[in-house]
Every structure is written in structure tokens, then in C-alpha cells.
């Protein structure tokens, strides 16, 4: 006798009268009652004739909806400077406390983003992130957006704390790896408004002098491609 039955007995005894209970389910006819034990096979049978929904993941990957909240990305301006200014507003907005930012000063030798300030340390802990997207709303420079990447599992905890280099957008064609100076005569406002559209020669010159081996310099492109291979 299970515990529940015992309770039942006790209650009944206490009430001192017999009770009857009626099921809410519709009553089955005699035929229905006869087939009841095998009725479940009906569902199986019915699904033989329906379209297949099985996903062949991970052999076949299906793209999610375009606005799916996946892994974050730290974007860049057209000349390769980072958009993130290390303001920590994303960290402030995060309800799960998944973001950790430490900012620092841009200097003439180390201009990472336009303006005075850049994010030196940027971490998102994907064990905490709930993909709500509040950080994206908070970001004043549109540095932070979300990609569609959803494969965020791993064997270690450390591996799921993504660092800045894991989150930075890849350099597109024509972009120059930061740090390098801003386009001469522009302000961070010009960058923000989208007035900077390409790398200029002063920036190329600066990188040539300071990091001649920089793979994103046009003259090093062939070499870099080779190395990548």
C-alpha cells in the first residue's frame, strides 16, 4: 500500500462516511473501453503519415531566426578601431551579472577605440548569460550586438568565460587591426555618425612604422593568407 492510499484511508475514516469520486474525463463507450489498452498505438500510426521534423544536428546546422539572441559580438568601425569604449553600461544593465569590463585610457601609442577611453578587459560569462539582450540596448556606441551563434557549450567553466578576443568581430576586408590612430581631423562623434568609412594612409603609415609585420596591412595580406593556410 502506498503512502497515498494510506492517506486516503485515513481521510475516509476520519470523515466517517463513504465518498465517491467521479472522473472529469469524458466517459468512454463500451468499444472505447475494449480498445483502451492499445489506443496509444494510434498516435504512433498517425505520425507515420506526417512530415518529419527531426533535425540532423550537429551534422546539419539550421540557421535560427535572424533576430535570435546568440553569442555577443564586439563590433568595429570601418577602419578597424573598436567601437567599445569600456563604459560598463552593458555590465550595469546585465540582470545576470555576466559581463565584466575594465576600461583604460587611449594613448597616442595605443589608440584602440576612437576618443579617450577603451575597454581593456571585456568578459562575458556564458554560464551566467541569459541572452536577454539588455546589454545590447544599453550600449551607447552599438559596439555590442548579438550574433546567431548558439553553440555555447563546453567542457570547462573557464572556457565559457569569453574574453575580448573571443568576442571581437573579425576584421573585414580593408580594416586595419587596432591599435592605430584615428583618421586625422575626426572626433569620436564622426566615427559614431558613420563618417569614417575607410582606412586612410596616415593610419597605414603609422602601423607600418610601429608594427611592420601587422598581417592586416595590405602588403602583408598574401603572407598572412599563406600562414592561415
Amino acid at each position: 500500500m502506498s503512502d497515498a492510499d494510506e492517506t486516503w484511508e485515513v481521510n475516509r475514516a476520519r470523515d466517517g462516511k463513504d465518498e465517491t469520486f467521479e472522473s472529469n474525463l469524458p466517459k468512454k463507450g463500451p468499444l472505447g473501453q475494449a480498445f483502451a489498452p492499445v489506443a496509444g498505438f494510434g498516435i504512433t500510426l498517425r505520425n507515420f503519415f506526417k512530415p518529419t521534423v527531426t533535425e540532423q544536428y550537429p551534422r546539419v546546422k539550421t540557421p535560427p531566426m535572424p533576430r535570435y539572441h546568440g553569442r555577443h559580438q564586439l563590433n568595429r568601425y570601418a577602419d578597424g578601431l573598436e567601437k567599445c569604449i569600456g563604459c560598463e553600461l552593458c555590465a550595469w544593465a546585465c540582470p545576470a551579472d555576466a559581463i565584466y569590463v575594465e576600461a583604460d585610457s587611449n594613448t597616442p601609442d595605443n589608440q584602440v577605440s576612437p576618443g579617450e577611453r577603451y575597454g581593456r578587459v571585456y568578459q562575458i560569462n556564458y554560464l551566467r548569460c541569459i541572452f536577454c539582450g539588455l546589454c545590447i540596448e544599453a550600449c551607447p556606441t552599438r559596439a555590442l550586438t548579438m550574433t546567431n551563434e548558439y553553440e555555447l557549450a563546453g567542457p570547462t567553466r573557464e572556457g565559457l568565460i569569453y574574453e575580448k578576443q573571443d568576442l571581437l568581430a573579425p576584421l573585414e576586408e580593408g580594416m586595419l587591426q587596432a591599435p592605430h590612430p584615428m583618421v586625422p581631423g575626426t572626433t569620436d562623434g564622426d566615427y559614431y555618425r558613420g563618417d569614417v568609412t575607410e582606412v586612410v594612409k596616415e593610419q597605414l603609415e603609422w602601423v607600418r612604422t610601429n608594427r611592420p609585420d601587422e598581417p592586416t596591412l595590405p602588403e602583408n595580406a598574401a603572407l598572412a593568407a599563406e600562414e592561415a593556410r
Binding site: 560598463e88 555590465a91 575594465e102 585610457s105 577611453r117
Partner: peptide, 9 residues
């Protein structure tokens, strides 16, 4: 202290 942190940190 320049750019080191925010009060909520």
C-alpha cells in the same frame, strides 16, 4: 582613477 571603474563595481 581615470577610467578604472564605475561606482557600482
Amino acid at each position: 582613477y581615470r577610467f578604472r571603474s564605475r561606482p557600482f563595481d
